[in-house]
């Protein structure tokens, strides 16, 4: 029935024999299993893989073919669910959006859990403090009065105002790249501020004042040191530091 597929398959091997796309790459993974060893350690895996594949594919290959105990999170594997943020070659990225050819496969590629959150096993961290900060800024629409019978209207310009911060997928790449968050984890962190920004600047929302009050406190936006780590880390390209600065400006213009 599917002759085209069969035809392609038959001359596939012939082509790949001339120039195999596979290269040998070493992955240096940060392993931690509290049930076996109290210390974390580095473990090297050398695999044959197409450099056009992603780091997530390499992790799958290692887990499925070499060491089944390797633990990491992933769900959609297409850069939308935000499960597989990890520190690859010292930078926070999504494993499912990072191609191996883009991160110099000639040297060992280091993969470790994101920093600032308690490591539970291998690349899996306890995300609860991160989500608690997210919940603390009330990331939902708050309105007064009667519900309209139809949708709440909004002009294209009003929608554009917070368009950038709607892209957040809560992967924690920004928050776990923030040196202020690394210290005591009490700072709200870029992700929570981005999601507060999304509602503060939404013309339909009426709790902007409350959210600003929450972020005005000791561990709110004023702890931001403008290091731009969050903007560099964001796999969705959100201008995180800019959003934080806009919240600061909103606080100042509200007061004076």
């Amino acid at each position: 029935m599917s002759t085209p597929t069969l035809e392609k398959k038959s001359d596939g091997p012939a082509r790949s024999e001339d120039a195999t796309p596979y290269i040998t790459v070493t992955f240096r993974l940060r392993r931690f299993n509290p049930e076996e060893l109290e210390e974390a350690y580095w473990e090297d895996f050398t695999i044959e893989i197409d450099p056009k594949e992603r780091v997530l594919d390499a992790l799958h290959k290692i887990k499925w073919e070499e060491d089944g105990t390797l633990t990491f999170r992933r769900s959609c594997a297409h850069g939308i669910c935000g499960s597989d943020a990890m520190r690859i070659n010292g930078r926070n990225r999504l494993a499912c959006k990072t191609l191996i050819k883009d991160i110099n496969p000639e040297k060992p590629i280091t993969v470790e859990a994101i920093k600032g959150l308690t490591v539970l096993k291998d690349l899996v961290v306890d995300m609860e403090p991160f989500f608690q900060a997210y919940r603390d800024v009330m990331p939902f629409l708050v309105t007064n009065g009667n519900e309209p019978t139809r949708e709440r209207f909004q002009s294209a310009e009003d929608r554009e105002r917070f368009d950038d911060t709607t892209k957040c997928i809560l992967c924690a790449a920004c928050t776990s790249s923030c040196p202020v968050f690394w210290n005591d984890g009490q700072y709200f962190g870029p992700a929570a501020i981005v999601n507060a920004h999304r509602f503060i600047f939404d013309s339909r929302d009426e709790a902007g004042e409350q959210r600003l009050e929450i972020l005005n406190d000791r561990d709110g936006v004023w702890r931001c040191r403008t290091t731009f780590n969050c903007t560099d880390a964001c796999p969705r390209g959100i201008e995180v530091t800019k959003a934080i600065q806009e919240v600061k400006r909103a606080l100042i213009t509200r007061r004076f």
């Binding site: 931690f32 509290p34 049930e35 109290e38 210390e39 974390a40 350690y41 920093k115 600032g116 959150l117 308690t118 490591v119 539970l120 961290v125 306890d126 609860e128 403090p129 989500f131 608690q132 900060a133 919940r135 603390d136 690394w182 210290n183 005591d184 984890g185 009490q186």
Partner: peptide
């Protein structure tokens, strides 16, 4: 039960009692 009580070089994350 599993996390170390003090942050160390290997486990740099501070132990934060969930949820904040």
């Amino acid at each position: 039960s599993t996390a170390p009580t003090e942050p160390s070089v290997d486990n740099p994350a501070p132990l934060i009692e969930p949820p904040r």
